[in-house]
């Protein structure tokens, strides 16, 4: 029982980065921009968050904001490549990851942020609720971002489904020619989606350092960005399904330290492989159960050039 409560109480903290990153990817990709740079934006956010905590000594929530902003800044480079210059989106996404890996390692090393721990975001206190047995630990001893994440999901789903902006964004991602004909500024919508999406991914990265590890190490996102990309495919670009998937991955990640804590003797590095192996498994499962509708936006990955002469 103790094991179970300890485990489940840790799940939200591990699930939040996956959830926010997946949501950011969905926003971005709904506009038709394939974003393989998630790992890079997470690194950027994580580094910026840690840097803000260490050098600016700001409130953790401000540090998270800085994480999102830094990631958004990086996304402008990506937007320049794929929206303005119409560079291949796969190459652009990959090169952003490499760029971010180099940039974050460079900045963090030269600023001396590497391997320095700090006190990050704490848990909220709901008074008596937090001390309830079982339920209190799992639901009422989490940091504020956990609760905000659910709110962000709800808002995003509403915007995508039932507002002009959301509908037009989806139209841009499904059929940019049709959207253009309807007077929608395709490039602007894509830019907006990329920036907002990457802010969310950067926030996910910032959460990793500011709330979870409370320390920066080079390359610390450890493939979570790639897992988030797989999650989006698994969720067929549906935000709520992506949240569910994030929780599943949160469970797996939370299990790893728990198993060591209860003295289970397993080969350490095989345990660390677990998230990647599970992701592979999830991808196989997704393609095996693929129905007609993959949910993939119709124009995903295709640059838009207005009205080519036939």
């Amino acid at each position: 029982m103790d094991f179970l409560v300890n485990w489940l109480a840790n799940v939200p903290g591990f699930a939040v980065p996956f959830a926010l990153a997946a949501l950011g990817l969905i926003v971005c990709e709904k506009s038709g921009v394939l974003n393989l740079g998630a790992e890079g934006y997470m690194l950027a956010g994580a580094m910026a968050g840690a840097g803000a905590m260490l050098s600016l000594d700001v409130h953790p929530l401000v540090a998270l904001g800085i994480a999102a902003l830094f990631s958004a800044l990086l996304s402008l480079l990506f937007a320049l490549l794929v929206i303005t210059l119409r560079v291949n989106q796969v190459i652009s996404g990959l090169v952003i990851v490499f760029f971010a890996q180099g940039l974050t390692a460079l900045i963090a090393t030269s600023q001396g942020w590497t391997n320095r721990s700090f006190s990050g975001l704490g848990e909220l206190n709901f008074g008596p609720l937090s001390t309830l047995p079982v339920v209190g630990r799992i639901f009422f001893q989490q940091d504020i971002v956990v609760y905000l994440t659910v709110l962000v999901f709800a808002v995003t789903v509403h915007v995508l489904r039932a507002t002009h902006v959301g509908m037009r964004l989806r139209a841009v991602g499904e059929n940019p020619e049709a959207a253009d004909a309807a007077g929608i500024p395709v490039g602007l919508y894509r830019l907006g989606a990329v920036v907002v999406g990457c802010m969310l991914i950067g926030l996910a990265g910032g959460y990793l350092t500011v709330a979870v590890s409370k320390i920066w190490v080079d390359g610390m996102s450890g493939g979570r960005g790639w897992i988030a990309i797989a999650l989006v495919i698994f969720a067929r670009w549906q935000p709520w399904s992506a949240l569910a998937g994030a929780v599943i991955f949160g469970c797996i990640e939370a299990l790893i330290p728990r198993m060591a804590a209860i003295g289970l003797q397993l080969p350490q590095y095989f345990v660390l492989m677990l998230p990647y192996v599970v992701t592979l498994g999830v991808m196989v499962w997704t393609s095996l159960s693929a129905s007609r509708h993959s949910g993939q936006p119709g124009a995903l990955g295709q640059p838009f050039v207005r009205e080519e002469r036939r």
Binding site: V87, N88, S92, F98, G102
Partner: peptide, 18 residues
Amino acid sequence: PFAMVQLIQAIIVICVAA
């Protein structure tokens, strides 16, 4: 930091892609 080498490679590729 040696990460600079990686950064420079990425910059070159970005410029060529552009």
